[in-house]
Simulated scan of single mutants.
Amino acid sequence: MKFSILIIFSVSLSILLGCSKETEETHIFILMGQSNMAGYGELLPKDKILVNKVFMIPTIATEPYAWQPASHPLHNRLSSDRFGLGLPFAKEYLKSHPNVTIKLIPVAWGGAAIDDLNKGTKTYNDAVKKALFAENEGIIKGVLWHQGESDTVNEELANSYEDKLHQLIIDLRSDLNKPKLAFIVGNLAEFYGTGKDHNSKERLKKIDQVKKALRDLPTKVEYTGFAESSDCKSIDHHMVHFDRESYILLGKRYAQEFENLINK
């Protein structure tokens, strides 16, 4: 009798422990794009505080890769030593997924056109290699993309932007073997094109063209989402980059778009 009770207790304990492990997943997100994904907001001393349950692989990292607790700045190359939307996204995501650990792969590059980020480029290959490494420890849930400013400089780039973006999504899903990989894009800033450097009639037309490609993405490619940039403000006189509060707002919007996508 005692032996039977012991078996039942052991099985029950194993089931409980197993269920506990299943609820604690690791979700992986890749951060791609140019400077507005890397972050350009004011960095405050409190932003150096590590964010609980969020980890990252540094942008500049050599193999063997190692995870480290995440804090701002997520990106560590060029001028990407500032506040961005990646951690606001992670904090918002944790509100809906409290039992999850988040691991971020930040690979954005300031000033990069989409031709600098698509399949075959160093940045693309870096993102895929890190994501495949990360998959050993969790589930690749999605890509957060904010990019396009550099593709508004001439008509050829603007005209080809949509096709290149769609192909990049196809390539990532294929190389990561994730045909339904979520891909969330953010709109270029509403104020982009109002500064003295980018406000010619011809430039505004190309800016609108890239914006339309981003906005139309969910109607043309499955498992994609679009985060609006309305009510955001600029930090610089060029009227290109968002300020700190805007990155917080954008991070929340990316998280909401992801929830909308997985709950369809």
Rank of each mutant, 00 (worst) to 15 (best):
Q209I: 10
D208H: 13
K196P: 04
K196T: 13
D216G: 03
V221P: 08
F191S: 07
D197V: 10
V210G: 03
V210S: 05
D231Y: 13
T224K: 04
G225I: 00
S229A: 14
E228K: 11
L214E: 02
D216H: 04
R203H: 13
L214I: 12
K211D: 10
Q209H: 13
I207T: 07
Y223P: 03
E222W: 00
E228N: 13
K201D: 14
K196L: 12
L204M: 11
S200Y: 02
Q209G: 09
R203N: 03
K220A: 07
A213F: 03
G225C: 08
S229L: 03
G225V: 00
G225K: 02
K211R: 15
N199W: 05
S229T: 11
V221W: 01
F226C: 03
K206C: 02
G193Y: 08
Y223V: 06
L217P: 05
K212T: 11
R203A: 07
S229G: 02
V210E: 01
F191C: 09
D197M: 11
H198C: 03
G225E: 06
E202A: 15
T219S: 14
K220Q: 12
D231M: 07
K196V: 13
A227N: 04
I207N: 02
F191A: 05
L204D: 01
G195N: 06
N199D: 11
D208M: 14
D197H: 11
A227V: 01
R215Q: 12
T194N: 14
L204I: 13
E228Y: 07
T219M: 08
Q209M: 15
H198S: 13
G225S: 06
G193F: 06
K206A: 04
V221R: 09
K211L: 03
L214C: 02
L204A: 05
H198M: 09
T224D: 01
F226Q: 00
K205W: 10
Y192Q: 11
F191N: 10
D208I: 05
T219Y: 07
A227T: 03
Y223R: 08
K206N: 13
Y192C: 06
S229P: 06
G225Y: 02
F191L: 10
L204C: 05
T224N: 04
L204E: 08
E202Y: 07
A227K: 08
I207F: 04
Q209E: 11
D208S: 15
S229F: 01
V221K: 11
E228A: 09
H198Q: 11
F226V: 00
Y223S: 12
G193E: 09
G225H: 04
V221Y: 05
S200C: 03
F226R: 01
S230Y: 08
L204K: 14
F226N: 00
S229I: 00
V221M: 05
K212M: 05
T224G: 00
G225F: 01
F226D: 00
D197F: 15
R203S: 13
K220T: 12
E202K: 13
Q209N: 11
K211W: 02
T219F: 07
Q209L: 14
K201A: 14
S230E: 11
K206T: 10
P218I: 05
V221E: 10
A213P: 02
L204S: 09
E228Q: 07
E202Q: 13
L217H: 03
V210N: 06
